[in-house]
């Protein structure tokens, strides 16, 4: 059951991610990304992180990506123009990505013997557990986030506002 679910949603994830790259229209890319994010939410559920799964949907799929589509709609962004881009970035970038992927995969496989398997029954983190740590040991970062969000609001307003209006 777990394996099947994992395979299905992992496939969704990858398909979404690849589609994100292949699509030339930003809105399609955005939708692919939403698919990735929603599938990830399911994977989080499988990993016993149910609060995160919901948060993933609410925050990422429901807020962040809405903003993206919103901007795409607002600016009426068209198809991506096919310009060649920086050759250097590609010449260095692709091998670098391959190397990173290879190294990480090797290391992960090598580490597997120290890691436990994941099954549905073990280790569901309840929201209470989460909040206990969040509001106790990690109170400072939590409070800090308020500053961060304040800055983000301030900045979004400052940047998106047209000059000349007060």
């Amino acid at each position: 059951m777990h394996l099947v679910l994992f395979l299905i949603f992992a496939a969704f994830c990858l398909a979404g991610a690849i589609n994100l790259l292949l699509q030339s229209h930003p809105i399609n890319s955005a939708l692919s990304l939403i698919v990735v994010m929603s599938s990830l939410a399911v994977l989080y559920l499988l990993l016993g992180a149910e609060f995160l799964a919901a948060a993933q949907i609410i925050v990422y799929a429901g807020a962040v990506m809405v903003l993206f589509t919103f901007v795409v709609m607002l600016l009426n962004v068209g198809e991506e123009e096919k310009t060649h881009g920086s050759r250097v970035a590609k010449v260095i970038g692709f091998p670098a990505v391959a190397v990173i992927l290879g190294v990480v995969a090797t290391i992960v496989l090598e580490t597997q013997k120290h890691l436990a398997g994941v099954s549905l029954s073990d280790g569901v983190t309840t929201t209470q557990d989460l909040s206990r740590v969040l509001f106790h040991e990690l109170l400072l970062p939590f409070e800090l986030t308020s500053v961060l969000i304040l800055i983000a609001i301030l900045g979004a307003v400052a940047l998106a506002r047209k000059e000349g209006h007060s």
Binding site: M1, H2, L3, V4, F6, A10, L43, L46, L47, V104, A105, V108, L109, T111, Q112, L115, A116, G117, V118, S119, L120, S121
Partner: peptide, 11 residues
């Protein structure tokens, strides 16, 4: 079928 290795997730 009920256990997936963690490494799969990581990969």
């Amino acid at each position: 079928f009920d256990v997936v290795p963690s490494s799969w997730y990581l990969i």
